[in-house]
Design a protein around this nucleic acid. Structure first.
Lengths: 225, 225
DNA sequence: ACCTGAACACCGTTCAAGT
DNA sequence: ACCTGAACACCGTTCAAGT
């Protein structure tokens, strides 16, 4: 039996959608309470009835991004599920490059984060990783993937305005011998194959942890189950 | 032959030190041109003679952090040098938790970044990694380490106010079966051994790449080599 | 219950001016 | 050359008020 005040004109969800639209178009820095309010045709103070404060709004944005990552098809094997999860994280990162880096700065304890962690736990368990190793393996995987995605959309991997070869020409040969010795190997970077290559490493690690497991449960890592 | 105007009362270095002091004490958010100026006993506009704009100031902060990471002792072996580098990155991250996460968001093309990249290149070359694999192995290592450090100081690994067990009690058993199955394995986390454990993985990968060098790739991960 | 309006204590950055 | 002062267009958030 709610009270009979006037009906709300905005909502938590509408606020989040407006904030995300601004962030995608002009970056997180452009997300201000005033800008969000203006986009909703409302006074800045109207937001505070729904939001708490600006930090809560940013947390809401992070949560929304996490919820955009689809859970993998349960009919796939554990390795395919992990790969799908990673690919989909990258898709979301590229869709919201301004917001994504915030992911690394909030505790991963919200429902949006926990559902992904749960899915990774399940994949690792199915792979045969000993329970004691599962949590840290999950953190290893997600830290790398989040760091990779943040680096890619945040510009850490990009070279600025110069090409790699141009930058190298400005480097002292004595101070940076390896940069000169590697030469053309620094020129091309293929993000697609690089990520896949890294994931093979982690997958190999998972198989190794599973194989090392003492023969108590008898559950060995196998391609299919 | 410089002109004969009045001598400067502040400098780029003094500005950076003031900004870092504020960031360490109150977080990056508290770093404003006005706050830095006040700490230096000067008008906000005085900074613009030395700084360009606020983004340049933040870039300067990032660069300063990178320059704080000491280069490893060249008399150590490659594996010990990599471990020292990683440990020292963590030391700097913990010393400046507010600024460190910015590291993932700027192109790694400044002198402060390049000297560390160069050191990693050299270690990987000494290990015997094929030149074509060195750049992506470096990015794999630094992405993980930076992501790990950012997660640790940024709070992604921390549980907020609740203990892990308390949070687990609030989780639906049907939606989060793995969280319940893992139980006590989620309670304790030892950051020290966890990082070392992850680095062993990367070190093993480096040894494998080095061993694969003569032939083509396609080998499987093996526990020992 | 939900929104408005005015106000407070902040921002980054410009421009013209002082020495 | 280096810094100041005033000004502009912004912030997040409070409080009291309207309906």
């Amino acid at each position: 039996m709610p009270g009979r005040g006037r009906p709300p004109t905005i909502s938590w969800d509408a606020i989040l959608r407006a904030a995300l639209a601004i962030a995608d178009a002009e970056g997180v820095r452009a997300v201000s309470m005033r800008a969000v309010a203006q986009r909703l045709g409302v006074t800045p103070m109207a937001l505070y009835r729904h939001v708490g404060d600006k930090q809560a709004l940013l947390d809401g944005l992070v949560e929304r991004l996490l919820l955009e990552v689809p859970l993998p098809n349960p009919r796939l094997g554990w390795a395919a599920r992990l790969r799908a999860l990673v690919d989909d994280v990258l898709v979301v990162a590229r869709r919201h490059p301004g917001v994504f880096p915030l992911l690394l700065q909030r505790p991963a304890v919200t429902p949006g984060a926990l559902r992904l962690v749960e899915a990774i736990f399940a994949a690792l368990a199915e792979a045969g990783v000993p329970p004691a190793d599962i949590p840290r393996t999950e953190r290893l995987l997600s830290t790398y993937v989040l760091g990779y995605a943040a680096s890619e959309v945040g510009g850490r991997f990009s070279a600025g305005t110069l090409t790699p070869a141009q930058r190298r020409a400005n480097l002292d040969r004595d101070a940076y011998p390896m940069h000169h010795a590697l030469g053309s190997h620094l020129d091309h970077r293929d993000p697609q194959t690089e990520l896949a290559w890294s994931l093979e490493l982690i997958e190999g690690w998972v198989r190794m942890l599973a194989a090392d497991q003492p023969a108590t449960s008898g559950a060995r890592a196998s391609p299919r189950r």
